[in-house]
Amino acid sequence: MSGRAGGHAGGHGELANAGSEPGGEEIVSRVRVRNLAVVLERRSVLSGIDLDVRDGDWLAVIGANGAGKSTLLKAMAGVLPCSGEVLIDDAPVRRLKPRDRARLLAYAPQSPALPVDMTVFDYALLGRTPYIPYLGRESRHDREVTASVLDRLDLSPFTARTLGHLSGGERQRVVLARALVQQAPVLLLDEPTTALDLGHQQQVLELVDRLRLADGLTVVTTLHDLSLAGQYADSMTLLSGGRVAASGAPAKVLTGELIGEHFDARVRVATGPAGRPEVHLERP
Rank of each mutant, 00 (worst) to 15 (best):
V33G: 02
V28A: 10
A64T: 15
D89I: 06
S44P: 02
G23C: 08
L72D: 01
S29Y: 07
M76I: 08
G6I: 10
L73M: 11
A18P: 09
H8Q: 15
D57R: 13
P81Y: 14
G68I: 13
I27E: 04
S20C: 10
A37K: 14
S44Q: 15
I88C: 02
D50A: 04
S70A: 08
G78E: 00
D50K: 08
D55W: 06
D89H: 08
G84I: 03
G23T: 14
S29D: 06
A67T: 10
V86F: 00
L73T: 09
A37W: 01
G66I: 14
P22L: 00
I88F: 00
E85H: 10
V45I: 13
G7K: 11
A64P: 01
S44E: 15
P22H: 01
G23R: 11
I62C: 09
L36T: 05
E85L: 06
L36Y: 00
G19R: 09
D50T: 09
R43N: 11
R34D: 02
I49V: 13
L80F: 01
L51A: 06
G66E: 03
G7S: 10
G24V: 11
S20W: 09
D57W: 12
G48M: 06
D52S: 08
A64Y: 04
G10K: 15
R42F: 04
N17Q: 13
V86H: 00
L72K: 13
A16I: 13
I49K: 10
G13M: 11
D90Y: 06
W58S: 03
V38D: 02
V39H: 13
G63W: 13
I49D: 00
V38W: 07
M76T: 07
G23Y: 01
R42G: 05
C82D: 01
L59R: 13
E14G: 10
G11C: 13
C82G: 10
A77F: 02
L73Q: 07
D90N: 07
E25L: 04
E14S: 08
N17E: 12
E26R: 11
R32L: 07
E85F: 01
K74N: 03
A77P: 05
E26D: 03
D89P: 02
S47H: 11
D90I: 03
A5F: 12
R30Q: 02
R42C: 05
A60F: 05
E14N: 07
A9Y: 08
R43F: 08
V33K: 04
A16D: 07
P81K: 15
A16H: 05
A75P: 05
G84Y: 00
N17W: 13
L73A: 05
G7F: 12
D50F: 02
S47D: 05
N35Q: 11
R34A: 03
R32Q: 14
K69I: 15
G23D: 06
G84R: 10
A77V: 10
L73V: 13
L73S: 04
R42Q: 14
G48L: 07
G66F: 09
K74S: 04
E25V: 03
V28S: 09
E14Y: 06
L15A: 14
S29A: 11
L51P: 03
E25M: 02
G63L: 12
G11W: 11
R30C: 01
A67D: 01
S44W: 07
P22K: 01
I27S: 03
L46M: 10
S44K: 15
G10F: 15
V33P: 04
